[in-house]
Design a protein around this nucleic acid. Structure first.
Lengths: 245, 245
DNA sequence: AGGACAGCGGATACAATGTAAATATACGCG
DNA sequence: CGCGTATATTTACATTGTATCCGCTGTCCT
């Protein structure tokens, strides 16, 4: 850590090509990897710099602040969403559902999968993303919004209903992944689901239902639970002048 | 930063009865007030100490860490929920809905109101609260869970369905308040809703639906939107062996 | 070729934060 | 009164985000 000789601050950065190696993609990918591995709390500029073999301040060329970096992670998640959607094209639905509905299912399920891959990053979706005013959200997020709106338009919603359905879609999706994926993060190595919730040491007589239901609460609803609830919500909006379904 | 005179570190804390004034309630109330006024980012131990006329370290007697303090805020929100539920007793529902259903409506609506009063604290619900394992959550939160489970049991759900319905209830409630209340925080003084989203400077031809729908997206669904969606979700779980709706 | 130049990364510095440890103070009880 | 315990303060430190300035690297122009 000390500078033994050489009064001038020389000879440092010439140790090979640590020059053009950084890029926004590399920074964000490395940040996401770090968050996946050690959680959001481990993401600091110096730490991330260390991962990339670079000084902390170098990162500021690719994200103008830490908040901007977090927004970048939100963007990265949506880019991964787009990749996955493009990978599995999901042609005309096998089941009898209309195209717009299975389209929304596919978007929701894919987002669920993305979040399952990066559970530690989920809080960013529920907070940072919503905190950013619509127009300033990363392009990938806006494209995602646009895709959902297009599917809703395809369903024949007028503007008001589409807007309501859009908000319901977003709320349900974010709420669902938050509730479902966040608990998995904290005691990850504990396989017994009942124990993972720590239901031991709930006072025995107090809160009887909670105590009884706790094991079942540790179950996951999975992507099926997501799409099932989504259908329920969507039906509510389609059922304006016709009967549900 | 220097000590001009008086070698001994005396004469400081004798300036009147700043002694037994602190309490957990006062600390949490002051913290919540500060968050309401200036946002979560303004909540630091020193700042909060300042609000209470006390040094930062004094707070550690009432919250063992900053995270514990944030959990305390989650608790405070749920205490306020309980107060409000107790205040308006909400006897037998005026409408024809069964008691359990209007009970759930009331809980959801009241929580919505609480969040409306403290929009800056909403992110804590969606992150801190879910991150804490079930059994370690504050007592008020557990009582809230118990109440919801009791209402679901009253509805005749078996354990598995009650658990699924409980998760859906929580996910929808948290997602809804997050989506609905969080944007309101950042540009609070902007009354025109379209402008609040900053839909200006969306590229004109790109994202046409988003651009067209943006004004409608700025609308709020209000508590009605919350309960409507809740009904849709609950119906999905009641409709096991009977036809939907 | 040489030399300006723009962009990249490093070095240093600073203020703000959470918090551990030791210390001083106030209150209540014998 | 004095003693003990709960309460608050002081001091200190490591960690964080980030402003600023500087040297280095590669490119392009003449």
């Amino acid at each position: 850590m000390d500078e033994p000789l050489g009064a001038g601050p020389t000879r440092h950065a010439s140790d090979r090509g640590r020059y053009g190696q950084l890029s926004r993609e590399r920074v964000l990918a490395s940040a996401l990897e770090l968050v996946d591995r050690e959680g959001l709390g481990a993401l600091s500029m110096r730490r991330l710099g260390g991962e990339l073999g670079v000084e902390a301040m170098a990162l500021y060329r690719y994200a103008s602040s830490k908040d901007a970096l977090l927004d970048g992670l939100v963007e990265a998640l949506h880019l991964e969403l787009e990749e996955r959607l493009a990978a599995e094209p999901g042609g005309p639905a096998a089941d009898a559902a209309p195209a717009w509905r299975s389209g929304l299912h596919r978007v929701a399920r894919t987002m669920y999968d993305v979040c399952l891959t990066h559970p530690q990053a989920v809080p960013l979706l529920a907070t940072r993303m919503l905190a950013v005013p619509l127009a300033r959200r990363p392009a990938a997020v806006l494209r995602h919004h646009e895709r959902v709106l297009a599917l809703l338009a395809e369903a024949g919603f007028d503007e008001a209903d589409a807007s309501a359905a859009f908000r319901a879609f977003t709320a349900w999706l974010l709420g669902y992944v938050s509730v479902e994926l966040q608990p998995m993060v904290d005691n990850p190595e504990e396989s017994d689901p009942a124990f993972r919730l720590g239901l031991h040491r709930i006072p025995p007589q107090a809160l009887p239902r909670l105590r009884r239901t706790a094991p079942a609460l540790a179950e996951r609803g999975g992507a099926e639970g997501l799409t099932a609830g989504l259908d329920a919500l969507l039906d509510r909006f389609t059922a304006h002048d016709r009967t549900a379904r």
